[in-house]
């Protein structure tokens, strides 16, 4: 069988650094959409706790345990990252989304100011602290944005990777030009 070369959605485009901001690829090894079946929400939380030390996150929240993370991504939906979804079989609709998303990580002291130019939500630490994850728009793109230690993870549809990088680089350059 042919040996295929796996390329991430951001291959050849990242990393980028302008001023104090850095944009890099941060693709998780595995992304699974978890949508609990009606009445199974408690069972899903229990199974996630037992298998990965996680739970089903409240709206706007994310949970992490080691490499495994789970981000709230919409009404009745969360993304399980870097973890095996098998323990949830029969409790939730599970969809492999690993190759459907491009994940970018924006880091630097003014990362929230950069995103303020593209995202109509307050992402400053006081309003969007550790353990926050939301679904919103990155300019005209649907995006999932999560707080990480030193910045933000930004997930956009894979086909939007180059557009998202272009938008973010424009902002990074203009902030860097201000000095």
């Amino acid at each position: 069988m042919a040996e295929l070369i796996a390329l991430s959605a951001t291959e050849g485009l990242l990393p980028l650094t302008h001023g104090a901001l850095t944009l890099a690829g941060a693709a998780p090894d595995r992304i699974t959409s978890v949508q609990p079946f009606k009445g199974k929400e408690a069972a899903v939380t229990k199974a996630l706790k037992a298998a990965h030390g996680l739970g089903f996150p409240a709206p706007g929240r994310a949970l992490a345990k080691g490499d495994a993370r789970i981000l709230w991504t919409g009404r009745g939906q969360a993304f399980l990252l870097n973890a095996d979804p098998a323990p949830l079989a029969g409790l939730a609709a599970l969809t492999d989304q690993t190759d459907a998303w491009a994940t970018l990580r924006l880091t630097g002291p003014a990362a929230d100011q950069a995103l303020a130019r593209l995202v109509p939500v307050d992402l400053r630490p006081a309003a969007f602290g550790a353990g926050s994850a939301i679904r919103t728009g990155l300019n005209h793109m649907m995006a999932v944005i999560a707080r990480v230690d030193d910045g933000f993870d930004i997930m956009v549809f894979r086909s939007m990777a180059a557009t998202a990088i272009h938008e973010l680089e424009t902002v990074m350059k203009s902030l860097a030009a201000r000095g």
Partner: peptide
Amino acid sequence: PLCGPRDRRE
């Protein structure tokens, strides 16, 4: 009710 106050463009 889930996300909190959001801009009309969403």
